[in-house]
Write a protein that binds this DNA or RNA. Structure first.
Lengths: 128, 128
DNA sequence: CTTGACTCTGTAGTCAGGTCCAGGGTTCAC
DNA sequence: GTGAACCCTGGACCTGACTACAGAGTCAAG
């Protein structure tokens, strides 16, 4: 499978594949006589794994770690679990942060309904 | 007030002040004879406004917009409100996204407690 | 008058995760 | 055999919000 076909199937830009390869995330595929990359069919699944892990909030460094972990036996399984738990807890913390911001902002927007003494903006005043 | 004093009081790096000025976020302060920036006392409050707005999820571009809005009368007040509501809704959407990721990840971690047939990692398998 | 701490300018580097480009080579259908 | 469509490489560029640096000038205490 050539670069653009794999890119199309996995829903990424073809340049992204080269970027992942440079980064060491993807193994270098074999080449055709003309020097074109020739990906195996399994590369599609691999890329989907990468994208899914990204959606779950893993960085590319972590995805790489997960990939190296794969197939490493029980110890790797524990390591993968630890990584996932860490990411899960990070997400919970991030959500709590954003929720605080959201509530703050909601409160501020409500000040807009307050009667305005003169021409001052209650929202801007409140942020100050 | 000189650069590092303002920076200290507002809790930012002195370089950040120059950066904000270059960016047009902060007005150029008057200069001493020697060419040093000489900030008015009000700059501390202004910077705190910037930082607070950032905490609320506004980008610096938006903060700039808010600053220009300030003092512009009732129309500006409405514009500020619209900006705040937009930011609030963005936050709600972002929170929902992260919550989905979090739940997905929680589910995955739970697969770790499943009995393992052989040495395969249930988590890695599940992400695939 | 010297020393050390501060400040100035302009430019460049950092982080992540790509994206784009020029200037070539390859493949394939017609 | 030729034109279009694809692919190659190395490197530059992008966003956002800073941060660092070199080389020069300024200020205040002793």
């Amino acid at each position: 499978m050539r670069t653009s076909e794999l890119a199309g199937r996995a829903g990424v830009n073809a340049e992204t594949l080269r970027y992942y390869e440079r980064r060491g995330l993807l193994e270098e595929p074999p080449r055709t006589l003309g020097g074109y990359r020739d990906y195996p069919a399994s590369a599609v699944g691999l890329l989907r794994f990468v994208k899914r892990a990204q959606e779950l909030g893993f960085t590319l460094d972590e995805v790489e770690e997960l990939l190296h972990l794969d197939g490493g036996g029980p110890d790797s399984c524990d390591a993968a679990r630890a990584l996932a738990e860490r990411r899960r807890d990070d997400l919970a913390a991030r959500i709590a942060d954003l929720q605080r911001m959201h509530d703050s902002l909601s409160g501020l927007v409500e000040t807009c309904d307050l009667p305005r003494a003169d021409r001052r903006c209650a929202l801007l005043e409140a942020i100050k």
